[in-house]
Amino acid sequence: MTEHRVLIVDDEAPARDRLRRLLEAMEDCRVCAEAGNGTEALEKAAEHRPDIVLMDVRMPGMDGMDAARELTAQATPPAVIFCTAYDDYALSAFRVDATDYLVKPVRREALASALTRAGRVNRPQSRQFAPQDNPAIVVRNQAGVERVELDRLYYASADNKYVTLVHDRGETLCDYSLRELEQAHGEHLLRIHRHTLVNRRYLEALTRTQSGHLAQLSDPAGTRLRVSRRHATGVRDYLES
């Protein structure tokens, strides 16, 4: 079994102690160092070369987001898992290539799952082996924080105040607007209607019917979605390109 070296970064000693205790109960992880802010985290990471960094967000001096941005930009970066008391940084966390996002108090089961995912080749490292990474939409709900990977998302549909993400595991409600999703993931999502974004990789064809244009998706259900006249040309141009 491969042992993963873990760097704990948090400005509060009790929080670091709790994470250390959780990690000590796991056979495949070893705490190699601790840091109290982002600047110290970069120094410790350069010295100890951790495989995984458990990173708080709000810290004095350099915060966790800035530190994670520098870590994940390295040639062989560690996997970064955010552990924070605030759940409103989730979207920003995955924009800096974080592997996971846990909300304090961190539960042992959630940490173990995040470490398992981080133990695989993380997304920044995988760019050496694959042409594209696998970003995710991060959703806050009653169960906590859920990641919906872009390669598993079929389309997003807006209805009143909520947006529904339809993916290979079912449906997930989120509080991001379609505009926010389009701005964050425009290279993956294509607008076909004022109420609908589709994943470009599943867009198969554009058909014309008596009632208008329909987008044919290559998902298992063979979904067909209405395309507005305003966006029909853009869909056709994308398919022809």
Rank of each mutant, 00 (worst) to 15 (best):
R5N: 05
R5M: 03
R5F: 01
R5A: 09
R5E: 04
L7W: 06
L7D: 01
L7M: 04
I8D: 02
V9C: 00
V9T: 06
D10E: 14
D10R: 14
D11Y: 12
D11L: 09
E12Y: 12
E12C: 11
E12K: 13
E12T: 13
E12Q: 15
A13C: 12
A13E: 15
P14E: 11
P14N: 11
A15H: 10
A15I: 11
D17T: 13
D17W: 08
R18N: 14
R18K: 14
L19R: 01
R21H: 11
R21T: 08
L22V: 05
L22C: 04
L23H: 04
E24M: 02
A25L: 14
M26D: 06
D28N: 14
D28H: 12
R30N: 04
R30C: 09
R30P: 03
V31A: 02
C32P: 08
C32M: 07
A33F: 02
A33G: 11
A35H: 05
G36C: 15
G36K: 13
G36I: 15
N37H: 15
N37Y: 14
N37V: 15
N37M: 14
T39K: 06
T39E: 13
T39Q: 09
E40K: 03
E40I: 03
E43F: 09
K44P: 06
K44I: 00
A45I: 08
A45N: 09
E47W: 08
H48R: 11
R49S: 13
R49W: 08
R49F: 08
R49Q: 12
P50Y: 02
D51F: 00
D51V: 03
D51L: 03
M55E: 02
M55A: 00
D56K: 12
D56R: 11
V57S: 10
V57D: 11
V57T: 11
R58H: 10
R58Q: 13
R58C: 07
P60S: 12
P60C: 11
G61E: 06
G61K: 06
M62H: 00
M62L: 09
M62E: 01
D63W: 09
G64D: 03
G64V: 07
G64S: 07
M65T: 05
D66F: 03
A67T: 09
A67C: 04
A67R: 12
R69N: 06
R69M: 08
E70F: 09
L71A: 05
T72A: 09
T72D: 07
T72K: 10
T72G: 03
T72E: 07
A73Y: 13
A73L: 14
Q74V: 07
Q74W: 01
Q74N: 03
Q74M: 13
T76R: 15
T76H: 15
P77A: 08
P77S: 02
P77N: 08
P78Q: 11
P78L: 05
